[in-house]
Simulated scan of single mutants.
Amino acid sequence: MTQPQQPLTKYGRLQRELSLTTKEPYLLLSSKKPIHPRVGLSPPPGTFKINVDGAASHDSSPSSIGITIRDSSGHVFSAMSKVLPGCYQADTVEAIALEQGILALEMNITRAAFESDALTIMESLNAKKIGGPLGHILHGILGLLSSFPSWTLRHLKMEHNKVAHDLAQLVRTSRTTQVWKGVTSPVLQYLLHQKEPS
C-alpha cells in the first residue's frame, strides 16, 4: 500500500525544483564564476565574514547547520549546508555551527568576523563565560579563535542571518551535506537573492 505523500515544506519544494536529489553523502560544488555581493553584506577591508546558524530537530531527526563565508568584497567565498550526526538541543547546535564555521576557514585568513543569531552563545564567548553543559565546546571555540590575529563575534537578529538559516533548514529536506566554493549553483543563488533586511 502506498503511503500518502506529506506536503512539501518551502525547503522541500526548493530542493525538488532545483533537482538536488543526489544520493552521495557529501556533495562539493565549485565554479569559477563569482557570486556577486549584495549591498550591506561586505565585511571591513581585509576581513572575511562568517555567518552561521543551527537547526535543532523536534522529531528526533538529525540536526543541521548552515554557514556562509564572504570575502572583503562581499562575494560569497564558501557556503555549507551540513547534516550533523545526531539530534541536539538548540544551543548545542548553534555552538557546533560556530565551531564548524571557524574550521571551514582557510588557514591563511588572518581577520575574521563571525555572526550568529544565537544570543546566549555569542554573549558567553564575548564574556569568556565558558562553564555549564556547553563549556567544552565554547572552550574549544575560543581556542580556535586564538589562532586568528584579529577576530570579532557579533550577535544579529535572525532576519539578518537568513541565508545561513535557510541553508541549515534546506539540508533537513535533502539529508545531504553540501559545500559550495565560489559557485553559482541554483540553490545558493536563490537563497542569496531573497529579500533580506539591510
Score class of each variant (00 low, 15 high):
Leu103Ile: 11
Pro34His: 02
Ile67Val: 04
Met107Thr: 15
Gly86Ile: 09
Leu28Cys: 05
Thr2Asp: 13
Gly101Met: 00
Gly132Asp: 09
Asp91Leu: 03
Thr120Glu: 06
Met122Asn: 09
Lys23Pro: 03
Ala164Phe: 06
Ile50Phe: 02
His58Glu: 10
Glu106Val: 02
Pro44Met: 03
His139Tyr: 01
Leu41Glu: 05
His139Val: 00
Arg172Asp: 03
Leu98Arg: 10
Asp91Gln: 05
Gly40Met: 04
Val83Gln: 12
Tyr190Cys: 00
Thr2Leu: 08
Ile35Asn: 01
Pro4Cys: 04
Leu170Gly: 08
Arg16Asn: 08
Lys128Glu: 12
Ala118Phe: 05
Met1Trp: 09
Ala90Val: 13
Pro45Ser: 00
Gln6Pro: 09
Ser185Thr: 00
Gly140Tyr: 02
Gln89Tyr: 08
His36Trp: 11
Glu106Arg: 00
Ser147Arg: 15
Ile141Val: 14
Lys129Met: 11
Ile130Leu: 13
Thr47His: 01
Asn126Asp: 11
Gln178Lys: 13
Val183Ala: 13
Thr47Ala: 04
Ile65Gly: 13
Asn108Asp: 15
His75Trp: 06
Asp71Thr: 11
Leu20Pro: 10
Gln100Ala: 10
Glu123Leu: 14
Gly143Gln: 15
Leu98Trp: 04
Phe114Cys: 02
Leu20Met: 14
Met158Asn: 11
Gln15Lys: 13
Glu94Ala: 01
Glu159Ser: 05
Lys82Ser: 10
Phe148Ala: 09
Ala118Met: 02
Lys32Gln: 07
Glu24Leu: 13
Pro45Asp: 01
Thr47Val: 09
Phe48His: 15
Ser116Asp: 01
Ser72Gln: 06
Cys87Arg: 02
Arg154Gln: 15
Glu159His: 11
Glu115Cys: 03
Thr152Phe: 07
